[in-house]
Design a protein around this nucleic acid. Structure first.
Lengths: 218, 218
DNA sequence: GTTTTCATGTAACCCGTTACATGATTCA
DNA sequence: TGAATCATGTAACGGGTTACATGAAAAC
């Protein structure tokens, strides 16, 4: 049995928690959740499913093509996986953790996609953790940029500028989300006040000087 | 001798083309160029250098700590690498290519950082190739979003929306760069009209409906 | 009738990181 | 004196992809 990647397993368990699925269908949902629209290969998925089954976190049932009435249900034999009791427990454990492993690049998207099954405090801690992480990154890059700006050519400079802009944009996004989550925490009776990130009139005026745009928080 | 990754090798050759360097210093420059501010490990760098040397694309000279005058030059023995004639040739070949290998996620940043050594037609083809690539991606995601929107929960939806926004932003960036490059092609006498991506008053009014913001091009 | 989509799986490979080993030099 | 930085390297591992094998049903 090969390596097991916590982020992939979390995604699988999280999706199967909603409804039992077979591998082929599971993969499509996975691609929505596993950031950046990349396509997970079967060469990764099926071994992962087997590993989870061997550890009794999920249970597979082969549906032997039982045609109930007439047509439209044919297909070939699929293996539908669902969470075991042990698996549900394990998932709860994963979802309640909020350490660095939750807000790093590789895992944040998956954890965010499963926010619907995550309690409010954990959500907030993950969002704040990621924000701090990105702010640190900005700090580092800006610093090194100040030291090396002169001897970099036009294009490298532009690449750097664009990279910073992307990160700044994500920080602004996180700020909105954090505000929304805090609002929910204070007034939990009214549900869905507004979509978490729908653009407000936020920073519409030009040229916010880098370094003052992002203020520390949390 | 282990695998050789074209993108890493291109980056190394590109940097060494500017000035000979030893591994430790090379790594720092590499981190500027190799997108996303990630830090390349020595476990990748040194084997790559050895591989390049064995193929006679670079040549290493061990500087045996020759203190020229008094102090300030001590340090320990470093190996300074520089391009061979063969290496320069090889790099030219890499830089003049503009296939999918140039505009994919993993390689685009490196190729862009080396635009200073790339001829104008190739630059334009790479930018347009990447733009088309991203536009395809947008198309695909929007389509699948339309099919599955209803049964996705709030957070997954928000993640998707943010992902689209990021890609749209990169497309807008590419559009500006393409305009700049075309301007340069038409009027090559005046150099550096403006920094390639310095923000114009572009899309300052709110809520451009997705789908109309990005128009086909090239 | 052939191409596309559904469906499951394996073995080989790729390209990176982590952890370790080693040692000199500079800075607090 | 002890920590940080400079400098080079190797072995083991990790977590993915590619390419292959197989086959049935649906769509064109």
């Amino acid at each position: 049995m090969r390596a097991r990647s916590e982020v992939l397993e979390t995604a699988i368990l999280g999706i199967l928690a909603d409804s039992p699925l077979h591998g082929y269908e599971l993969r499509k949902r996975l691609n929505m959740v596993l950031g950046s629209f990349r396509a997970l290969s079967y060469g990764s998925l099926y071994p992962a499913l087997r590993s989870l089954e061997q550890r009794a976190l999920i249970a597979g049932t082969e549906t032997k093509d039982a045609p109930p009435q007439h047509a439209l249900s044919g297909r070939r034999s699929r293996i539908v996986y669902e969470l075991t009791a042990h698996g549900k427990e394990h998932l709860q454990g994963l979802l309640s953790s909020s350490g660095p492993a939750a807000w790093e690049d590789e895992s944040f998207d998956v954890r965010f996609a499963l926010f619907g099954k995550t309690d409010a405090e954990t959500r907030l801690r993950i969002l704040e953790g990621r924000r701090t992480r990105l702010a640190e990154r900005l700090e580092m890059v800006r610093e090194s940029a100040n030291r090396t700006r002169e001897r970099l050519d036009e294009y490298t400079l532009e690449l750097q500028r664009h990279g910073l802009e992307q990160v700044e944009h994500e920080v602004a996004w996180l700020d909105e989300l954090i505000d929304t989550e805090r609002g929910r925490a204070r007034a939990p009776r009214s549900e869905a006040r507004r979509a978490p990130g729908s653009t407000t009139q936020n920073e519409a005026e030009g040229d916010p000087r880098p370094g003052t745009t992002i203020k520390e928080r949390g």
